[in-house]
Design a binder for these strands. Structure first.
Lengths: 351, 351
DNA sequence: TTTTCCTATGAACACGCGTTTACAATCTCG
DNA sequence: CGAGATTGTAAACGCGTGTTCATAGGAAAA
C-alpha cells in the first residue's frame, strides 16, 4: 500500500554497495574517529550517490534523541488572532532550525483542561520529543511542573525564576522594568508629572513586573503615584477599553499621560477615550508596550516600548537546546536580553 | 545519560503485569476484534494505571505512519512579519490536531535554493512525515514536483490545478473571481463607473485570478476597463505604494474607485495618495482584499473582501490527511470553499 | 624473531512494536 | 461422540540504526 515509495535505501544497502559492514557505515555517518580516510571516502561516495539519510525513527529507537522540540501555545479564547504569539512561534522555529532541531507546534486552549494536558503529555511520551517550550503558560502550571518533575527539559517565558537549581527548567523574561523606566522617563522628559498606568494581568509575571517597574520609575523621577490613576485591566484590547471607559465614567480627574501594559490594551483604551470625545495626544499622552504590528499604522501612531521578542526567543531556544545536549548544564548565567528601546511616534505631546 | 527518565514502561511490561503476551497487548491497543472483553478490560486497566503510550518511533519502524505532516512556509524576505501566513500556520496546526496529526513547521527563505531544498527533502526522508503542505510556493516549483514524483502527498494553495489526475497532489484555492465580483459589484452599486485595479503578483495564481475576476466583473456590470487604470504592483505594501505613487506622478486622469490585490497593497497605495494630499474615500474609493488584521483599525477603516482562510486551510489539511490515510483517493470533488464576503467599512463612498 | 599493543572491521545484540505463523482450546455440526 | 471450524494466545521475525565485543592483521617494541 504505502510501499510504493522509492527504493528505500538503508544502511545495509549502503554497506553492501561500499563493500564494508553496516557498522562501518554507521561509524562514517556519525563521524567516528577510528575509520581510515580512504574507507570513509569510499563510503561517503556511495552515501552521496544514493542520497542516503538515516531513518530517524530507527535512530531514536536505538537511543538517539529526536532532535525535535515541542512548542505549546496556550491561547485562552482568541482563535489564533494573537499576533504576538505568532511572532514568537516563528522565532522559535527559525532559531531551532538553525541548530538542527525541528519544531512540533501544538495549540492548546486551556492547559489545566484534562484532555489538553493529556495530549501534551502524549506528545512527550509517544513522540519522545527532546524538550518543550510553552508560550502563554500561567505561573506554576501543574502540567508543566509535572513534566519537569518527570525529567523533561522545559523552556518558559514570563515566569518567576525558581529559587532552587533546576537543570530541566529554562526561563527567559523580558526586561519589563527597564521598559517601564524608558516609558516613564520619556514622559517625565516631556514635562509630565501626572502619570497613570493601565495594568496588565497581575497574575502573569509580566503584569507584575511592569507595575513594579512603573513604581520604581516614578520613584526614580520623584513623581507621586496616584492610586486612582492605576487602572486594573489585562492584556487584551477589550480589557483596555473597559478599564478606560469605567475610569472616564467615574468622573475622576484625569492624568496628563498614561502608560499601558501593552499596545493592544492601548488600542482599546484609546477607543474608549475617543468615544468620550477625547483625543490622543491632545488630551492625554499615551505610551504603549510591545511595538505591536499595528502600532505604526494606528491613528495616532503609537509611541511604544519595543521589546526584542525575537532575541528573547532565540536565547530561550538556544538555552533549551544546550540543556538538551547536556553541554555544561547550568553554566552561562542566562544573561537577560538587552532589547527594550523606546519607539517615539505620535501619541505623546510635551506638556 | 538520558536514561534517567521515568521507568520507561513498554508493551513487554504491560504484558507481564496483565499476565498476557505482548501480542495481546498490541491487539488491545490497536482495537482488534478477536480479543475477548474480559481480557481487553484486564489489559486496558494495566495500561491506564501505568499511563502506557506506544512509542511512536517503534510504531513507525514497524510500518505505521508518523501521523505528522510537514508545513513549509516559504517567505521571501520579510522576516516572519507576514501576518497572513501566520494565520494560515495556526489554521493548519489546529485542523491537523483535530484529526490526530501533528505538524512540523519549517520556514524557508527560497525554495529554489539548494540548501533549503535539501533540508526539505531531509525532513521527508529522514523523519518520514506522511505528507507536506507548502505555503507561498511558486507554481510548478521544481522541489515540489520532485517530491510529488517521489511519492509524497503534497498539499498546495494558490496553484493551478493539474490537468492530469494526480493522487499525491491536493490543491485548494480561494474563489478569487467571486471576491472580485463582490468588490466591483459593490462599487458599481454605489454608482462608480470609472474603476481601476492595483494588480498583485501576476506570476502567482491569485494575482492572475483576481485580475481575471476583475475583468469578468467589469464586463458583467457593463463597465469599460481602462488600461491606464490597471496598475501593476505585487502583494506587498511597498509595491502598492510605488504603484500608486508613479500613477499619480504620471498626471493621468484618476478613476473614482479602485480595487486592490490585497489589503497590504491598499495600505501602501493609500499612503501614496495621502502624500499627494488626496484622501480616501473623498477623492477615491478603495476596496481591499483579505480582511487583514489591520484593516478594521486602519484610517479609514478598509472596506475589503474577507476571505475564509481558515476554512480553506481546513479543507486543504483534511483533504491531505484523507489522501494520506488512503480512503477513497480522488473522490470528493474538492468543492471550493464558499468563504468570500464583503466587509463594508469606511473606505468607499457613493458617487 | 617473538611478544605486545593498537587499529580496522565485522558479527551480534538491543531498541519497542506490528504482524505473521503456529498452536491450543473451545465450539459446531453431522 | 468425533472431525472440522473457530477463536484466543504465544512465539518468532522484521523494521533500521547504534553500540558493544571479539578478532584478524599489522606495526612497534623487546
Amino acid at each position: 500500500m504505502s510501499k510504493l515509495r522509492k527504493s528505500e535505501i538503508n544502511s545495509v544497502e549502503i554497506a553492501r554497495l561500499a563493500g564494508v559492514s553496516r557498522s562501518t557505515v554507521s561509524r562514517v555517518v556519525n563521524n567516528y574517529a577510528n575509520v581510515p580516510p580512504e574507507t570513509r571516502a569510499k563510503v561517503m561516495k556511495v552515501i552521496e550517490e544514493h542520497r542516503y539519510v538515516p531513518n530517524l525513527s530507527a535512530q531514536v529507537l536505538a537511543g538517539k534523541g529526536t532532535r525535535t522540540i515541542g512548542l505549546f501555545v496556550i491561547e485562552a479564547g482568541h482563535v489564533s488572532s494573537d499576533m504576538l504569539s505568532n511572532m514568537l512561534i516563528a522565532s522559535v522555529i527559525e532559531n531551532a532550525s538553525a541548530l538542527g532541531y525541528y519544531v512540533l507546534t501544538h495549540i492548546i486552549r486551556d492547559a489545566s483542561d484534562a484532555d489538553s494536558a493529556r495530549s501534551v503529555k502524549d506528545i512527550f511520551y509517544q513522540r519522545r520529543i527532546d524538550g518543550g517550550i510553552f508560550i502563554g503558560a500561567a505561573n506554576e502550571e501543574p502540567l508543566i511542573e509535572e513534566l519537569i518533575a518527570e525529567g523533561f527539559k522545559i523552556g518558559l517565558v514570563d515566569q518567576h525564576l525558581p529559587g532552587r537549581n533546576e537543570p530541566n527548567r529554562v526561563v527567559v523574561n523580558f526586561d519589563n522594568e527597564r521598559g517601564m523606566l524608558l516609558a516613564v522617563g520619556y514622559l517625565a522628559g516631556l514635562g509630565h508629572k501626572r502619570i497613570g498606568i493601565v495594568n496588565g494581568d497581575m497574575k502573569r509575571l509580566s503584569g507584575q513586573d511592569k507595575y513594579d517597574g512603573f513604581l520604581a520609575a516614578m520613584k526614580e523621577h520623584g513623581l507621586p503615584v496616584e492610586p486612582r490613576w492605576v487602572l486594573p485591566a489585562g492584556f487584551h484590547e477589550e480589557e483596555g477599553y473597559e478599564a478606560m471607559r469605567s475610569f472616564l465614567r467615574s468622573g475622576e480627574e484625569r492624568p496628563t499621560a498614561i502608560v499601558m501594559a501593552n499596545d493592544s490594551v492601548a488600542f482599546g483604551a484609546i477607543r474608549a477615550l475617543r468615544e468620550q470625545g477625547l483625543s490622543v495626544p491632545e488630551d492625554l499622552s499615551v505610551v504603549g508596550f510591545d511595538d505591536h504590528a499595528l502600532s505604526a499604522r494606528f491613528q495616532p501612531a503609537l509611541t511604544t516600548v519595543k521589546v526584542d521578542f525575537d532575541g528573547m526567543m532565540r536565547q530561550l531556544t538556544e538555552s533549551l537546546i544546550v540543556r538538551i545536549e547536556g553541554e555544561a548544564a547550568g553554566q552561562a548565567p542566562e544573561e537577560p536580553p538587552a532589547g527594550s528601546r523606546l519607539i517615539v511616534r505620535d501619541s505623546c505631546r510635551p506638556l
